[in-house]
Design a protein around this nucleic acid. Structure first.
Length: 446
RNA sequence: GCGGGGAUGGCCCAGUGGUACGGCGGUAGCCUGCUAAGCUAUUACUCUUCGAGUACGAGGGUUCGAAUCCCUCUCCCCGCGCCA
């Protein structure tokens, strides 16, 4: 949630931020209106409560002296009715005001490109040597900032779907039978590759000062609402029936809410947390996109970076977690580009977001592998996570970034490391110690 | 799942119907010949500063008045049961 006090004092930047993101300004007007109504009702309630307290104290002293208090008592009874009514409307206003407030997006960083649509994201840099099918070269050049770091392919590599089928690594049909589309059985060496990726990423973060955790895979409504936005809530989140529990869509949510309602000491910050968890996503609203294979699925493992820090440090940390994520894909030797995501595509939480998009030779496209966001104090305020400073408690800033999302990274490996004859794919060298094998192919022995 | 005990401000803790005691720690000031002690104020949240209101795990109820009595729920501790 945004800082309501700041908004009241100086609404101009909030109007501007709303407009740049493509929201109507009336989001803010609506809030301010409700806020005023709420304040009036609150004032009214306080005055009445005060009256009641004063009278109640009188009753107390009268009774102590043994005097009759029945006159005052009847007055108080009337007051109680009035208070009940005011409280009722106050409660309703409170809920509406809260809803209106949480719809107001975070203030944007000045470097965020101002526009709508993924195609308007601003290229930050390209890294690697991509394998590009001849027909995709124009697209590749256009989207890599005119890079010449590529090797041309005479034919298009197999899609990961075809390759998996050929190698018997994924059973989509039976998963569909028992759970539906976008589910899968991962098999044999592909499962071992997944475990290898997880272990590699966990070690990577552990070596860089992250405390690694496995969070609860389900969290309650308050924690989820505090850590995410309504759009994610509606499009991604599975609810557990008859329980106040929701399956997590990313370990960002339990990690962010892990410190909810706490007040940290200054010397505890910054806190770097690396989370490993399955991620459960409904993928509502993505019908027809990436329907085959394991590119877009209802569950996958993800190793996530999360940082709690002071306001002054958060922009440096955004660069740090982005650099970490980039290093991972450099080590895995997967060509990628970094984009600065434009205002119209950010969630209400994000002040700024970078995506790392890997090159997928079979698709002939850059596709998202990583999102690295600075949510400044937006998430911290919703979750009431503060730190003690010499001039009062301050809201912590929070940031998060993917390290590795397993399924997509495996697809990237299958496409970028594919053998020329389409009989399999090699494993990135950095993973060999984790997999114990160097390739997955038709002629595998085990 | 059963039985017992708990949850009070950053931390510790008192308080069984009359409006939350005290300590520690933090901050500010005073004093002090000094890495100390003492004194004073302040140290949850909200509203407009005074001031007022709210807050004793959460939500209801009884009452003029609830941390305190009643009901429901959550979490923690101990024991029993069950279980990977």
């Amino acid at each position: 949630m945004i800082d309501v006090k700041k908004l009241r004092e100086n609404p101009a930047p909030y109007y501007e931020s709303c407009e740049i993101r493509g929201y109507g300004k009336d989001i803010i007007d609506k809030f301010l209106d409700l806020d005023n109504q709420w304040k009036d009702a609150l004032k009214k309630r306080n005055v009445l409560n005060h009256e009641r307290n004063v009278l109640s104290r009188e009753v107390s002293s009268l009774i102590k002296r043994g005097t009759d208090a029945s006159q005052i008592l009847s007055k108080v009874r009337e007051l109680k009715n009035e208070i009940a009514q005011v409280e009722d409307s106050l409660r309703r206003l409170e809920i509406k005001r809260e809803e209106a407030a949480s719809a107001i997006p975070n203030l944007l960083h000045s470097s965020v490109p101002r526009c709508k649509g993924d195609e308007n994201n601003k290229l930050v840099r390209y890294y690697g040597t991509a394998r590009v099918f001849s027909e995709d070269i124009a697209y590749f050049k256009k989207n890599s900032g005119g890079s010449n770091d590529y090797d041309m392919l005479g034919k298009r590599p197999l899609s990961h779907v075809d390759l998996e089928a050929k190698l018997g690594l994924v059973d989509l049909k039976r998963a569909g039978k028992i759970a539906g589309s976008r589910f899968y059985f991962l098999k044999d060496r592909l499962l071992k590759l997944e475990l290898a990726l997880v272990n590699f990423a966990v070690d990577f973060l552990s070596e860089r000062g992250f405390t690694i955790v496995e969070p609860p895979f389900m969290i309650n409504r308050r924690s989820l609402e505090g850590s995410t936005d309504m759009e994610t809530f509606n499009d991604a989140i599975y609810k557990v029936e008859n329980e106040d529990l929701y399956l997590i869509a990313t370990s960002e949510h339990p990690i962010a809410s892990m410190l909810q309602d706490e007040i940290l000491n200054e010397d505890e910050l910054p806190i770097r947390v690396g989370g490993l968890s399955p991620c459960f996503r409904k993928e509502a609203g993505s019908h027809g996109k990436d329907t085959k294979g394991i590119f877009r699925v209802h569950q996958f493992y993800k190793v996530e970076q999360f940082v709690f820090c002071k306001e002054d440090d958060s922009w440096d940390f955004l660069e740090e977690i982005l650099a970490n994520a980039e290093e991972i894909y450099k080590i895995l030797q997967i060509p990628y580009r970094v984009v600065n995501v434009c205002s119209g595509e950010l969630s209400v939480l994000n002040a700024k977001k970078y995506d790392i998009e890997g090159w997928f030779p079979s698709q002939g496209k850059f596709r998202e592998l990583v999102s690295a966001s600075n949510n400044t104090d937006f998430q911290g305020r919703s979750l009431s996570i503060r730190w003690r400073s010499s001039d009062g408690n301050k809201i912590v800033n929070t940031l998060n970034s993917t390290a590795i999302a397993t399924t997509r990274t495996m697809v990237a490996i299958m496409e970028n490391y594919q053998l020329e004859d389409g009989s399999g794919f090699r494993i990135p060298k950095a993973l060999w110690p984790y997999t114990g094998f160097e390739s997955i192919a038709l002629d595998d022995q085990s």
